[in-house]
Simulated assay, not measured.
Amino acid sequence: MTLRSKLSLVAALTAGLALAACTTTKETTVFVPVVAPTPPSSLTPQPIMLFNQAKEGRKLFTLEAEFPYCDVETGKVIVVPRWYVTDFASVPWYGQGFIEPQGPTARAAIVHDWLYAVGEPGKRAEADAIFLRAMLKYGVKPFQANLAYQAVKTGGERGYALPGDWMFIDPRRQDVRQPPPFARPKTGAVRIMPRCQGFEALIQTGWRAYPLPRPVIAAPPPVTTTRTPIDDVRARLPWGGDKKK
């Protein structure tokens, strides 16, 4: 390689390095909102009493979150939505003595009330049978469970598919009736899981039959920072950059 060629190569490399040094860089910072994971639904909820609400002299209760239940016999997954109001009226008066609002019987009664409120044609007997199995599952003594079951079986027809049972109240705003979250469904089951296999694992994932609206989180717009080699040189100077005097 001749001297002239070497000089040309050095000049080309120098020009390339100079151009690279003059390259302007841009960095964009994007703010991604963090949404907390959805906690699983409670499989053993406690109904909340509505202290200033009553219906025909009966105390009213509601749920702060949806209550999923799976009936092993039918495989039906029944989910009572949050804020659904119940007075345990699907159980006739002579059977309500066995319903404890803070006890295991109440959970079965809430499922039964929901099935009665939905009022699927031809499914009242099945709703009563689910009520019995739910009571036994939640630890109600067989003698008491059978008495409550016989009460709904013989006298529950008058409380099936009543329009007035479709009511929702937020326990934090007990003086306001909430609009129904959806139209009255045709069936009380949201899905079928044979023998309820995988049901509890499904609930632990945070699955919701009636998803809540996602909260709107306002994130700041992306910020783009532009830097040039001159900015780097200025930052190194004793009086340059953002150094305080």
Rank of each mutant, 00 (worst) to 15 (best):
Lys123Trp: 02
Glu126Lys: 08
Glu126Val: 12
Asp128Cys: 10
Ala129Asp: 15
Ala129Phe: 12
Ala129Ile: 05
Ile130Tyr: 08
Phe131Gly: 09
Phe131Ser: 05
Leu132Thr: 01
Leu132Lys: 07
Arg133Gln: 06
Arg133Trp: 09
Ala134Arg: 01
Ala134Gln: 02
Ala134Tyr: 00
Ala134Lys: 01
Met135Cys: 02
Tyr138Arg: 00
Tyr138Glu: 10
Val140Thr: 14
Lys141Leu: 05
Pro142Tyr: 04
Phe143Ile: 03
Phe143Ala: 12
Ala145Asn: 09
Ala145Phe: 05
Ala145His: 02
Asn146Ala: 10
Leu147Ser: 06
Leu147Arg: 09
Leu147Gln: 14
Ala148Thr: 13
Ala148Gly: 06
Ala148Cys: 02
Tyr149Ser: 01
Gln150Cys: 01
Gln150Glu: 15
Gln150Phe: 12
Val152Thr: 15
Lys153Asn: 03
Thr154Met: 06
Thr154Ser: 13
Gly155Glu: 09
Gly156Ala: 01
Arg158His: 04
Arg158Ala: 14
Arg158Leu: 05
Gly159Arg: 10
Gly159Asp: 12
Ala161Trp: 00
Leu162His: 08
Leu162Ile: 13
Pro163Val: 13
Gly164Ala: 15
Gly164Tyr: 12
Asp165Cys: 11
Asp165Lys: 13
Met167Gln: 09
Met167Tyr: 04
Phe168Leu: 11
Ile169Gln: 05
Asp170Lys: 01
Asp170Met: 01
Asp170Ser: 04
Arg172Gly: 04
Arg173Leu: 05
Gln174Ser: 15
Gln174Leu: 08
Gln174Tyr: 10
Gln174Met: 11
Arg177Tyr: 03
Arg177Gln: 11
Pro179Met: 05
Pro179Glu: 13
Pro180Phe: 04
Pro181Arg: 09
Phe182Asn: 15
Ala183Ile: 09
Arg184Thr: 14
Pro185Gln: 07
Pro185Asp: 14
Pro185Leu: 12
Pro185Glu: 12
Lys186Trp: 02
Thr187Met: 04
Thr187Leu: 02
Thr187Gln: 15
Thr187Cys: 04
Ala189Lys: 11
Ala189Trp: 14
Val190Pro: 01
Arg191Tyr: 00
Arg191Asp: 03
Arg191Thr: 06
Ile192Cys: 12
Ile192Leu: 14
Met193Arg: 09
Met193Leu: 15
Met193Gly: 06
Pro194Asp: 06
Pro194Glu: 07
Pro194Val: 08
Arg195Val: 03
Arg195Trp: 05
Cys196Asp: 08
Gln197Asp: 13
Phe199Arg: 05
Glu200His: 06
Glu200Lys: 09
Leu202Thr: 04
Ile203Lys: 08
Gly206Val: 06
Gly206Ser: 05
Trp207Ser: 07
